[in-house]
Nucleic acid binder design. Structure first.
Lengths: 340, 340
DNA sequence: CTGAAAGCGCTTACAG
DNA sequence: CTGAAAGCGCTTACAG
């Protein structure tokens, strides 16, 4: 099912070089030759074989995108943006799901070593700085999120400390004084939880409120059931919180469920804020206040960085891009309906 | 960044053929030679260049997955399953987002014509049977969903008529008599809406209830806001419904929102059922009853069909696989809490 | 058990 | 303006 340059050349009565010239729109092809070749191409239904072209060029035109799982709305929405941005620049995107497991994250680099992908955008959960540094030496690499700090490889992440501080300040600004946090992770390398916890503590300190470890509940993973379990724990406290900042939206959605089951009103009894601003936030009961990272900017920056790395450009030092975010205020904290 | 077979051969003092034999684990290589080659491979950090291998074989090891958008949870969850199944069989998955637009859906086949993908799993919204038939002649193709009927190409879809009938019967079984439907589409080729509407009508007929066109509300697209708008329309009726079957979960989630805003109780005033059983269903207020297609089975069947087509196997006639589904009953229809 | 050669389909100096 | 040849890295008959 495929005519080659040679077939076209034979039919048009020219050399393959000439056909190649026509296909690639080079100058210096006479009009007559060009149209003869065009006709032969149409007649045979010729399409260039990209695999062969890629072998010649030493690149594939495909980039990898490694994420924990597409079932998590934040990653699905991010993947949507990355693919859309890539398509605009004629790159194809191959998706790898890592489940946040180190072995699978490490495997993502093998696609590059075997020349299937020209570069990789990865949201690493388990890989450490050493491994990522080694990876970066082998393939153009862009890191997403704050799991590892800057200086390891090109990095795209919003300012999580500030974002978490603003979310907490918003809750404090509503007059809440017992503000809990859900999503702490007592794993050494858990950068995301650490920076968000830092912002939470900064806000408390600035407001002159003592840090109460009882109000900080860990979450093993960042799924809805984890948030519900954590909220139940908080509700069982002798002095329960009047507000809770969840380190992602799924945790917050679980917390809303636990509050509903316990008959607590949101936000009257407990105000709830999340992080990521996934679509679902607009339709929870009540709609969820959340930190809204600019996902299109994150995806666009990541792709731009990767493209320039793949072109061999960019500074020797890893770059760091910090896309903007906003706080999307909704009824789960203010009680005011914003309509649909 | 890349030693070739030739480099390894030189270092090991053998021919490239011998190295190739070792790499591909062929018999008939003496132990001494094998270990010498192994050492050279390790020393040079040699990895086979898949692009070259693919050129030789005429295939890429990559399949395409074309979906409307990853931002829709059902498609994200389905993509998750397809990628997981593909990885188990060492296939890589390249994702294309079509937005349901015909021009973008047509483009997905060009990846195949240029040998980037060996086959395509597509959930078509806009393509007609003629185009798909032509596409099928050019590349191994598997269709997802019921937008087009059987006989065009290999097709994987649950029995939508039966599923819609069961959902409606469930509502009727609760004693509801004014059961509405949200998600009708007055577009000619809109197979999904048609088959689900058929199941709805079948259930009404079997129960001896007259079909009331006022209770069937169209939806331009299947997103949350469309469901909310449709529900508001139903609530404005002189004789509003006491139950509503939504053709997908996002519509149902929008309907829940409109009901909440209008102060109606679910399910006491209006029972609500959806379709797809996305994760979010378990955490809506109240949790949403929904038709639950076996997504892993859908993904697995689609991949198996595609793999056998790519291998040149399979009958000349298009195959049809009908994975199972269940009705996940939750509080939005029964009012009984199932816990978390 | 191992080697030399051809070829997958393309592009690119190098000639003319 | 066009052609003949080499080579990207691999595998596979064909010899030996």
């Amino acid at each position: 099912v495929g005519a080659s340059l040679k077939d076209v050349a034979k039919l048009a009565g020219v050399s393959v070089k000439t056909v190649s010239n026509v296909v690639n729109d080079y100058r210096h092809v006479s009009e007559g030759t060009r149209s003869r070749v065009r006709e032969a191409i149409d007649q045979l239904g010729y399409r260039p074989n990209l695999t062969a072209r890629h072998l010649r060029y030493g690149r594939s035109g495909i980039i990898g995108l490694a994420l924990p799982e597409l079932g998590i709305p934040y990653f699905a929405e991010l993947a949507e943006e990355v693919i859309a941005a890539a398509e605009r620049q004629s790159w194809s995107v191959l998706i790898d799901q890592t489940d946040g497991r180190g072995d699978r994250e490490r495997l993502t680099s093998s696609g590059a070593r075997s020349r299937t992908i020209d570069g990789l955008i990865i949201s690493p959960l388990a890989l450490d700085a050493d491994f990522l540094t080694a990876m970066r030496a082998e393939l153009p690499l862009v890191l997403l999120g704050e799991q590892v700090g800057p200086g390891v490889a090109d990095l795209v992440a919003i300012d999580n400390v500030t974002a978490a501080r603003e979310a907490t300040e918003h809750l404090l600004g509503l007059g809440r004084r017992r503000v809990a946090a859900i999503g702490d992770q007592r794993v050494s390398a858990a950068g995301t939880a650490n920076v968000r916890l830092q912002g939470y503590r900064d806000a408390l300190a600035a407001a002159g409120i003592a840090y109460d470890p009882d109000l900080v509940v860990p979450a093993e993973s960042y799924h809805r059931p984890d948030g519900a379990a954590a909220m139940r724990l908080l509700l069982s406290l002798a002095d329960p919180p009047d507000a809770v900042f969840c380190f992602n939206d799924l945790l917050a959605i679980g917390a809303l469920r636990a509050l509903r089951e316990a008959g607590r009103r949101v936000p009257e009894d407990v105000a709830v804020a999340g992080f990521d601003d996934v679509e679902e936030c607009r339709y929870t009961a009540p709609p969820l206040t959340s930190i809204a990272p600019d996902k299109a900017a994150i995806a666009g920056s990541a792709l731009d960085l990767l493209v320039s790395r793949m072109a061999g450009a960019g500074p020797a030092e890893p770059a760091e891009v910090t896309p903007p975010f906003t706080l999307a205020v909704r009824e789960s904290t203010t009680g005011v309906s914003a309509g649909v």
